[in-house]
């Protein structure tokens, strides 16, 4: 049975988000879900379809829209990440992504606080107050990604129970963010113990991104995965893109955090046969 109450709360939150963007000069865009290249990061697995891949986020397409000169834009729509199923993950989920032209991560942090506050008000809960902390204050960078993430998951993440904005990631975790010195100019938002959003000061150079894509490919090959296809139209657009900062926020998780839902399935109108994790045959 679907949870009618939670689905109504979800609708209230979505309405509050759209109102906020409307009031702050953002244009809503829709970009296609089927794309030639669904991801660039090494640990994202796009779902394969006949004519390409399903996007893991609308980032590449939205950057082409930015390069076309549309100014501040946002999008709310489905994204797909293969192999990600659990009480906090769903193969199909709803992402809010927005880009603020002429701004950096400090302005985006202010917007996150205002926007989450508006969403909280829509479901009559107190607006969270976020503390800010840099990754280096939480976990020393020993330069070994494997052990860094293992310690992050087992030692740090369980302590992030209060609303938190984590800033200044090690440069090797830049993804598509600008790097200053040995720090990537990006932040993540934690709410209700969940990683809610991920933001970048966007890297403006396509040649830099091509190098990172090559590095990601070698990681994938080493792990026995095939390299991601390259989206040349996106990379060409990056050089024409205005200076901007962008952020992707999981809407299902926002609804979970604001309504106290323990399982992502409770905030989705999910088909009962989909997204169920079954034990492998013969292991009983």
């Amino acid at each position: 049975m679907l949870d009618a109450h939670r689905l109504r709360q979800r609708a209230r939150i979505l309405r509050a988000l759209r109102r906020w963007f409307d009031a702050h000069g953002y244009l809503e865009v829709h970009t296609p879900v089927i794309v030639p290249a669904g991801a660039m990061e090494p640990y994202l697995e796009p779902v394969q379809v006949r004519d390409g891949q399903l996007h893991t986020s609308p980032e590449f397409a939205m950057k082409r829209v930015l390069a076309a000169g549309l100014g501040r834009i946002y999008q709310i729509g489905p994204c797909f990440r293969d192999e990600e199923v659990g009480i906090h993950h769903s193969l199909e989920f709803t992402m809010l992504e927005w880009y603020r032209v002429g701004a950096g991560t400090p302005e985006l942090i202010d917007e996150v606080e205002a926007l989450v506050g508006a969403a909280a008000e829509a479901v009559e809960v107190e607006a969270p107050i976020f503390r800010r902390v840099s990754t280096s204050a939480l976990l020393a960078d020993d330069g070994d990604p494997d052990s860094w993430f293992h310690r992050w998951v087992s030692e740090v993440e369980p302590t992030l129970t209060m609303p938190t904005i984590v800033t200044d990631y090690p440069a090797w975790q830049a993804a598509l963010a600008r790097v200053r010195g040995d720090v990537a100019d990006r932040f993540e938002v934690y709410l209700g113990g969940l990683e809610l959003a991920n933001a970048f000061a966007e890297e403006p150079s396509s040649s830099e991104l091509r190098e990172r894509a090559t590095a990601a490919d070698s990681l994938r090959r080493a792990a026995g995965r095939s390299p991601h296809p390259v989206d040349h139209a996106f990379l060409d657009a990056v050089d024409r893109m205005p200076r901007c900062a962008g952020i992707a926020m999981g809407i299902d998780r926002l609804v979970m955090a604001l309504t106290g839902a323990p399982d992502i399935a409770e905030v989705q109108a999910r088909h009962p046969e989909l997204g169920v994790r079954r034990p492998p045959p013969g292991s009983g």
């Binding site: 990061e41 640990y43 199923v85 009480i87 906090h88 993804a175």
Partner: peptide, 27 residues
Amino acid sequence: QFVKPGKGTAFTRTKLKNMLTGSVIER
């Protein structure tokens, strides 16, 4: 529980009960 930190690889967080002592650990 399946967990996947920001830009990292995937992990599974577990709670395990020692069948001899009954004590519970996280791994």
